[in-house]
Design a binder for these strands. Structure first.
Lengths: 209, 209
DNA sequence: GTCTATATGGCGATAGAC
DNA sequence: GTCTATCGCCATATAGAC
């Protein structure tokens, strides 16, 4: 009957539950029992769908990692570098604020040499050539200062991702636990990054309006 | 005899071993047996010096966290903001490159609500007033654009820390595993950050040299 | 203080009925 | 495909001799 549908539903529920728990607790901290509970099924059924905790984790990690990288990819068809920055920065911050544990989870797991995790990162077939051409063009036209694509991308991602990953430190260390001040800080963060990058990239002899 | 000295030596060896293993494997991934092995002692002795894994972990985390925050603190007596940036950026990157797992370890652990971890962060009694005064002074003199101290500090730390924490991603995703290119990238990173921040902070009508 | 031996519990994984 | 029951292991922690 609706057997096939049930399979999909169960598998989907497992994947959703596993993603939540893995991101929240990390691979080592996650418990198969807790994943089963949140998925509303039995622990044995987990091993029926995914043979082991390792396999389940890799499944989740691959999906999440590729999703995050695609988040950069989708804005690469743009007229100039500033257009790219203005689109990617608010989008990235918005996504990460809805998933606050995602950055530290990813950064943590990629630094433990799990088998095959490096392979997952390299498997993402991003086409940077488009953005690279735009960058070189912008530089040649004198619209922005000379900069390598790699430094630029790392700059942007750093400024977006670190504040989310380090939220407890920033909240405690810079704002003494004052959540209102921190919220205000984060509300201005995207605009601030765009402004900083615009100021940094714009040549001094090319003042805009 | 040298009993007292032996105690200190043993405790020190435990602390060093525990710090290495916790940073490398995370709290959940670390094993008391492995810590004991690396310290050259017995597993039971760990529990004699530190009652539990939790207590040992908190001991380590506190030390490491305060050390990192102090790393910012020590450069705060400076004439102007650019002096601060030019000293803190190379120093921070240099320290973190020698301890590549440190950033992702810290970022990961602060996002799991271990009991008392927030307390540790707030306990660091940094005096930001000095730097704040310098910043406000620099802004009033028109040496740099208007910017809040919090956004500035987060900008600097982001640009320094993220590239270390995300090294496997940057290496795989931006450099396709080419370690030579990545090394070159990191060699230029400190100078790049200083340049970017100088360009961003310097008012457009105040061209230097 | 330091060790060996053991208690105690929890976890991933499997067997087997339905 | 889903469940209950259980195996086998390993981790933290303790007991007790030296």
């Amino acid at each position: 009957m609706d057997n096939k549908e049930n399979i999909k539903i169960t598998e989907q529920q497992i994947l959703e539950a596993a993603q939540e728990i893995f991101i929240e607790k990390g691979k080592d901290g996650a418990r198969m029992q807790e994943i089963a509970d949140r998925a509303g099924i039995n622990k044995a059924l987990l091993h029926y769908y995914f043979r082991s905790k390792d396999k389940l984790f890799m499944n989740i990690f691959k999906k999440v990692m590729h999703g995050l990288l695609k988040q950069v990819d989708q804005f690469m068809d743009c007229e100039d570098i500033f257009g790219f920055i203005e689109k990617v920065v608010p989008s990235y911050i918005s996504v990460l604020e809805k998933n606050p544990y995602l950055p530290s989870f990813i950064l943590n797991e990629v630094n433990r040499n799990h088998e095959g995790i490096l392979n997952i990162i390299q498997t993402s077939d991003l086409d940077k050539s488009k953005l690279k051409k735009i960058l070189e063009n912008n530089i040649a036209m004198g619209k922005i200062i000379p900069i390598t694509l790699e430094q630029l991308i790392v700059d942007i991602l750093s400024l977006c991702i670190f504040p989310i990953a380090a939220k407890p430190i920033i909240l405690g260390y810079l704002f003494q636990g004052n959540t209102n001040s921190h919220e205000e800080f984060m509300k201005q963060r995207a605009d601030h990054i765009i402004q900083i990058m615009r100021l940094a990239l714009t040549p001094k002899n090319n003042i805009q309006s």
